[in-house]
Structures are given as C-alpha cells and as structure tokens.
C-alpha cells in the first residue's frame, strides 16, 4: 500500500463527502427551518433526477436540465407545502412525518407508472467526460464538477441566510414564529418559499447524481438513509454540521473501503451511533427546535 494510494483514497473520500452533502442539504434545510422531518426526501431526489432526464430529453442539454429541473420540482415542493403540509402545522411533529413518508411511496409508484421500472441511461455531459490527473491519480472530471457545484450552492445559501434581509427573517422565523407573526411577518409565505428551496436543492442533488448512479425509481431509497446519517451526525438542521458530517462520513467510508470494503455501508451507521452516544444532538445540533 503506497502513500499515493492512501492520498487518493483520502481525496475520493472528500469527493464522496461533497456528494453526500449535496444529498443531505435539502433535508437539513427543511428540518432546520421548519422542523419538518421530510421522509419524501429520497423520493423527491429521484423525481428530481427524472425531471432532469425529461428536460434533458426535451432540450438535448444537460445544462438546461441542471437549471430547470430543480426549479420545476421546487415549485412542485411548494404545492406540497401549501396543500398537504400546511394544514398540519401546530399538530404533533409525527403528522408531517407520516404524511411525507406516504408521499414518498406515492411518488415512487407514480414514476414507475409513467417511466417504467427499468433503469434509464443518463449520459455524462460531453464537456465533463474523461479523467483529470491529480498528481496522485486520475479522477473523473464530472465528480470534480459536482464538488464545484456543491461549494457554489453552499456559498449561495450562506450568503442568502446570513447576509440578506430575507435570510434574517427566515432565521428569526425559525427561532420564534409566534413573535414574527406578532411583528406582522407573513410566516406562511416564508415557509412556503423555504420548503420550495429545500425541495429544489434536493432535486438538484438528483440531477447531479444521475450521471453517476443512473436513474431508476428506487434510486432515492439509499439516498434517504445517507441523508439522514449526514444530517443526524451534523446535528439536525445545522448547515455547517451537514457539511462537516458529509466530509467525515465520506472519508470514513473511503478509508473503510481500503481496509474492509465489505463494511463500507455499515460504517456510516456505526459512526452515527457512536457520535450520538457522545453528542446526542449531533456535532453542531442544538436541542431540536419546536419539538
């Protein structure tokens, strides 16, 4: 085992971490801001990939798919919030959880009906094919692109939340919705937008994952588990937590792959159990808001 291989394995881990962050972001935002555990997360991720496939088929371009599909599914997410989730606010947190859990099944079945049960090819866009020599080994250009997109999305989110008036209201709203209402802020509209953004980012994750993992109705099943692990380790609802957790999980998986590859999936869950023992709210978690 050479130093080069270990370095390469470390880098693969960080790159996988970026993918995992992308996969978990939507779940984390929606929980952090609205306190809703979105069990339809994996299904929306998958629907995002199919929307990307559909747009790419219409326009013949991956780039349009990357742009339009998340907006489409984000709007769809807003419909879900407005008509399904909003009536449940103020009730037990189990209610939206059960609702989204069922919604996940409905979405998967709907996709099976309209697109079939078989996997569908999703080509890596021409400009992003091939490998890049990193000095320690070769790495697919597309995966480097995904890392870039993740960094960009995180930056935009950070600016949006920390540097804009909208972000200020959102943060205040998630901290104390009652006071915000008293102050005359229309919280419902705010939550509608936040839910839409969360779902849009989830769909973006789906489109980005499609050229790596192929597109099938079940592609979201594992994603839901991955996203939960990352969100729980990071601390439910904490963005910096999700980032750190994504990277830690990525590197753990990668290093396990080197020494005991058959344990590569299990290690995520073992890590989660371990961290929860030491820090019950996750790395950056506050006590869960509103629960």
């Amino acid at each position: 085992m050479t130093v080069q291989l270990i370095a390469m394995q470390l880098f693969s881990g960080l790159a996988l971490g970026a993918v995992l962050i992308m996969v978990a972001l939507g779940l984390s935002i929606i929980f952090g801001m609205l306190g809703i555990v979105n069990f339809a997360h994996g299904a929306l991720f998958m629907v995002g990939a199919y929307a990307g496939l559909y747009v790419a088929g219409l326009t013949g371009s991956f780039w349009w798919a990357l742009l339009i599909a998340p907006v489409m599914i984000g709007l769809f997410g807003m419909l879900i919030e407005r008509f399904l989730i909003r009536p449940l606010y103020g009730r037990s947190p189990d209610d939206p959880l059960l609702l989204t859990f069922g919604l996940g099944y409905v979405l998967v079945e709907a996709v099976r009906i309209f697109f079939g049960t078989d996997g569908i090819p999703f080509s890596t866009p021409g400009a992003l094919r091939g490998v890049v020599n990193l000095g320690i080994g070769f790495f697919p250009l597309y995966r480097l692109f995904v890392i870039g997109v993740v960094v960009a999305v995180l930056l935009l989110l950070w600016i949006g939340l920390e540097k804009t008036k909208f972000g200020l209201i959102v943060r205040a709203g998630s901290a104390d919705p009652l006071i915000m209402r008293v102050l005359g802020v229309d919280i419902s509209r705010l939550w509608l937008v936040v839910f839409g953004i969360g779902v849009g980012i989830t769909a973006l994750g789906g489109v980005l994952a499609a050229p790596m993992r192929n597109v099938s109705p079940e592609m979201g099943t594992l994603v839901l588990a991955e996203a939960f692990v990352v969100t729980v380790i990071g601390g439910m609802g904490s963005l910096p937590g999700a980032v750190i957790a994504g990277l830690i999980v990525g590197v753990s998986v990668s290093m396990t792959s080197l020494f005991a590859p058959e344990m590569a999936t299990i290690v995520m869950f073992a890590l989660m159990a371990l961290i929860l023992l030491v820090r019950p709210n996750g790395l950056y978690g506050r006590a869960a808001p509103g629960l």
């Binding site: 291989l5 996988l16 792959s257 080197l258 590859p261």
Partner: peptide, 20 residues
C-alpha cells in the same frame, strides 16, 4: 479482491485500489 456491500450506490472509493 474487493467485496462491496450489496446495493451500494457509490463505487468511487473502491476504484483507487483497483487502479493501483
């Protein structure tokens, strides 16, 4: 000889060993 978990979504972390 690399054993991977059944139903794995990402194989990127197994590939450096294969290439090496």
């Amino acid at each position: 000889e690399i054993l991977h978990p059944f139903g794995a979504a990402d194989y990127s972390t197994f590939i450096p060993t294969i290439l090496a």
